[in-house]
Design a protein around this nucleic acid. Structure first.
Lengths: 347, 347
DNA sequence: CCACAGCATGTTTACGTAAACATGCCGTGA
DNA sequence: TCACGGCATGTTTACGTAAACATGCTGTGG
């Protein structure tokens, strides 16, 4: 049996990949005509076009994107840098970015950073700079970013999520402060004297913004501001905070900075015999799909991650297409409060 | 004020991007020497090397990956095709893939498919074929795949997750059957007469495999096989199943095909006044981080997604490096049972 | 003192594509 | 009948990189 390649190209030693020249030869035209057909240019008579298309089909031709990119100086690819896909928010944002980018003919290239140190961020941006990307969407905090973006070649556009750098970068984010205000006001509106708070990690801008807003609402309302408990987004840290809060007899309402920590709170309160919502009300943030099935179903602030992703893509594409420089400004996506059964008036 | 570019290159109309030729000119050497320095080749005297490096720094040179890819016929990129990042399993697998790929100098390009139709899969593979990838990791079922992989150019390697196509493709997956057996045997071992089951979606191979194993264990043990309840991975579908199961007085043990559906079960049982684990034991699958904080903490089958991702990358890299054809075979990652508080002996 | 080995560096070329420019043919109008 | 316009197609070239080959210099051994 003669050795055969998968491509069905006859004639012994086949080339690794079919090029325009191969198609041109088979169709009996020049490679430029193949190029014109491939790109749908006008000015190719239909009989010629058909011949070329037939030859393409027969050889299984596909354009070489590296050559195209070299020619055009564009890659039709957007890079995404983030710390972790583990959080619901990040993975859903990335998914939305990928979907919308695809709709616009862009692929996305992912670089996750396992340990969020300045060095690793720098390295990731350096790699992005060497990679074939036209733009970068960074899902991280600004202070980690500033030194890093210089690693990008000029002409690579940047959009940032989870940051307050609207004066220098194009920023898209959920309206964290507004969401947190809704949560705290909801609890105060139910008649709670004040609201305790479990924060996210210090390194997250979103978390700090939620904490600020929580404090601001309490201060505006002239309520005492209890010391915040420090979490790290994980259910486990929420659980630890819950065990501590269960010891505070005057704690009747808690705003957790995300749903997973709220889940930890629920478990801790249950273990300590404090009923939710009868003894303590709990509000989360994110509205992950599971939140409706917590025990009890969680009142939380809904984030529209898909919209954040959409606007990120829109932002970078606008920069790419207008060849504009950084287009500073902050684009905030609104939130909504979803009231379920984990909140009630104090008794 | 004179118009200035961001690159700091003096002299009016700068080029969009710094090339080797620019560096060579500044350093007073040929571009080939720059290439040698850039790639760390030996045979460049250190004084020359220093000059070139200095010129690179001054101009902010970075290699053009498109030109490199064209030259080498390799892109150092792995494509990943999947249906959704929303499921914990997928997003964590992708994260592991990205991390390990990065460690090997490969970037990953993501193509999510929003609606899992044959046409969309075909389209995704077509786009992958035009994209700059050396290999593809497909996280999906085989029957959606077969027609699609022909869209890839010859020479693009494929590794599949969530499939039983070990005879034709290189498959990496969690050992679904073994995990399911562990779950069901655990429940039988506690003294339950039989085990009810909530399935995942019909379109998931992982789900079908778990269901098969559940049935097989019951049959081997000579126990009655209750009709399975059909879910779709969501907590909501688990909740619906739970409401139905709560009506079955002889139901004392349930194996849910994932943790989110188990969460739905827990809520349904609670609402219907059936205590877990006193009245009903529940086991999930996945061991998502939150599972330890469900009410009660969930007994579940732990999947090592990171290991799955690692082996995927290892698999494609092996194919790339040996230029081997598809390397059929199935590589199963073991699971472990994590016993928490949602299971107990029947009373 | 010269030939030649060995090494640092330069020159040519190819990778696949597509813009820019060139060619050649057909039809139309004077 | 011929000049010219317009159109289908072909030829040349550049994109940035790096292998392959060429050059020229330095030092050493006969």
């Amino acid at each position: 049996m003669v050795e055969r390649g998968g491509s069905g190209v006859p004639g012994g030693r086949r080339k690794q990949r079919v090029s325009m020249a191969d198609v041109a030869q088979l169709a009996g035209v020049s490679s430029q005509t193949v190029s014109r057909v491939s790109n749908g240019h006008p000015g190719v008579i239909s009989s010629t076009r058909e011949q070329v298309l037939a030859a393409m089909r027969e050889l299984g031709y596909r354009p070489n994107s590296a050559a195209r990119a070299l020619r055009y100086g564009q890659f039709n690819t957007i890079g995404v840098i983030l710390f972790s896909l583990s959080s619901t928010g990040n993975s859903r944002t990335v998914e939305a970015i990928a979907t919308h980018a695809a709709a616009e003919g862009y692929a996305i290239t992912l670089i996750p950073i396992d340990v969020p140190t300045q060095d690793n961020v720098l390295g990731a941006f350096t790699r992005m700079g060497e990679l074939a990307v036209d733009a970068v969407i960074a899902i991280m905090e600004i202070h980690l970013l500033d030194a890093a973006t210089v690693q990008l070649p000029p002409g690579v556009h940047v959009v940032v999520v989870d940051s307050d750098a609207g004066d220098r970068y194009s920023v898209v984010d959920t309206d964290q402060a507004d969401g947190a205000r809704k949560a705290v006001r909801h609890l105060l509106g139910l008649g709670h004297r004040t609201v305790w708070h479990v924060t996210g990690p210090e390194t997250s801008f979103a978390s700090r913004r939620r904490t600020q807003a929580w404090r601001a609402v309490l201060e505006e309302a002239g309520r005492p501001v209890p010391p915040p408990l420090y979490g790290d987004w994980s259910a486990e840290s929420g659980y630890a905070a819950g065990l501590a809060l269960a010891e505070q007899p005057d704690c009747t309402a808690v705003f957790a900075s995300n749903d997973q920590m709220a889940l930890g709170l629920l478990r801790a309160f249950r273990e300590r015999g404090r009923s939710v919502p009868e003894d303590v009300s709990v509000v989360g943030f994110d509205d992950i799909p599971d939140a409706a099935f917590f025990v009890p179903p969680l009142t939380t602030v809904h984030q529209d991650f898909a919209e954040v992703g959409r606007r990120c893509v829109q932002g970078v594409l606008h920069q790419i297409r207008t060849r504009g420089g950084p287009h500073p400004g902050t684009d905030l996506v609104p939130t909504s409060l979803v009231v379920r059964s984990s909140t009630a008036a104090p008794r």
